[in-house]
C-alpha cells in the first residue's frame, strides 16, 4: 500500500503540530500513543496505530527532557513506525526498525533548532535596544514556527523515502534481529523507570515502591487500580505534612514573640 499525497500532508502536518504543541501548549505532551493512533486513523488502521503508539509509550516511560535537554523523539518514532507498519504490511517490528532510529536522530535536530533560536534571540534583543519594538515582537514568534520543523522534516523524509529502504533491510534481516527489537522494546522501559527513580525521594518513601510492586507482580492489580490506591496513599501524606508545617509555624511564632519581648526588655 502506498501513501496518497493527502496522507503524506496530513502525517507531516501531524508531526509539525506535535512539536508545536509540546513547545507551547503541551496538551498532547508526552502522549506518544495518541500520535500513533492518529497516524493509524489517517491510514485507515486505528488499531495498529494504537498498539504501535502504546509500545513506544511504554518505551518512553520516565524519559523526559529536563532543563532544556534533548530527548529521543518518541512521538516521531510512533508516527513513522505506524506508517511503515501499515504501508509495508509487515507489522510493528518493521515500523520500529525505522521509527526508533529516526526518533533518536531527532535529538540532533532539536539541538540544531535550539542553536538557530540563539541567533533569533540575539536579533530580537538588538531590535529592543534600537527601540524597534514592532520588529522585536515579530521576530520572536518566528522561533515558535521554525522549531516544529525538527520533527516535520524527518517524518516527511522517512515516510516518503523510508518504505523502500525498510523493505530492503527487512529482506536481509535475520530472524534474531526482529526478536532482538522486540526484546529491546521489552527492556527499554527499564531505562525510563530507573531514570525516574533517580528523581524520586527513594530514601523517604521508597517502601511504596515495594507495595506497588507486590500488588502488581504477585496480586496482578491493574495500573489504573494502582494509581487510585496511590492517590489514597498521597492524601494522608499531604495532610500530615501540612499539619506538621502549621505546628512548626506556630512554634516559630511563639519563639519570635518571645524574642520581641526580650528585645523590649533590653
Amino acid at each position: 500500500m502506498g501513501l496518497t499525497a493527502l496522507q503524506v500532508i496530513l502525517i507531516t502536518g501531524l508531526a509539525y503540530f506535535k512539536t508545536l504543541d509540546i513547545s507551547t501548549t503541551q496538551i498532547f505532551a508526552f502522549d506518544t500513543i495518541i500520535f500513533g493512533a492518529i497516524t493509524g486513523l489517517i491510514l485507515g488502521d486505528f488499531k495498529t496505530g494504537l498498539v504501535t503508539g502504546a509500545t513506544l509509550q511504554l518505551m518512553s516511560l520516565g524519559v523526559a527532557a529536563l532543563g532544556g535537554a534533548s530527548m529521543p523523539d518518541y512521538p516521531v518514532a510512533a508516527i513513522i513506525a505506524t506508517t511503515i507498519a501499515i504501508t509495508t504490511g509487515k507489522g510493528m517490528a518493521a515500523g520500529l526498525a525505522l521509527g526508533v532510529p529516526v526518533g533518536m536522530l531527532c535529538i540532533n535536530f532539536d539541538v540544531l533548532l535550539k542553536l538557530i533560536n540563539s541567533a533569533f534571540a540575539r536579533k530580537a534583543q538588538s531590535y529592543a535596544k534600537k527601540k524597534e519594538f514592532k520588529k522585536m515582537t515579530r521576530i520572536i514568534p518566528i522561533m515558535t514556527l521554525l522549531y516544529p520543523l525538527q520533527s516535520a522534516v524527518p517524518v516527511f523524509l522517512a515516510i516518503v523515502f523510508g518504505k523502500p529502504v525498510v523493505e530492503a533491510i527487512l529482506n536481509f534481516m535475520p530472524d534474531w534481529f526482529t526478536v532482538g527489537l522486540n526484546v529491546a522494546g521489552g527492556m527499554l522501559p527499564a531505562v525510563g523507570i530507573a531514570m525516574l527513580l533517580t528523581y524520586m525521594p527513594l530514601k523517604k518513601y521508597g517502601y511504596w515502591l515495594l507495595i506497588g510492586f507486590v500488588l502488581a507482580a504477585y496480586l496482578k492489580l491493574a495500573t489504573l487500580g494502582l494509581g487510585l490506591l496511590g492517590i489514597a496513599a498521597a492524601i494522608p501524606t499531604y495532610r500530615q505534612l501540612v499539619a506538621q508545617n502549621e505546628s512548626k509555624k506556630a512554634t516559630n511564632n511563639v519563639g519570635s514573640g518571645l524574642n520581641e519581648e526580650d528585645m523590649q526588655d533590653e
Partner: peptide, 17 residues
C-alpha cells in the same frame, strides 16, 4: 511529597507490567 507517594506506588507496579 504526596505526589511522590503516588508516583512510587505506580512505578513499583509498572516495573512488572
Amino acid at each position: 511529597d504526596a505526589i511522590s507517594v503516588l508516583g512510587l506506588t505506580v512505578i513499583g507496579g509498572i516495573i512488572s507490567s
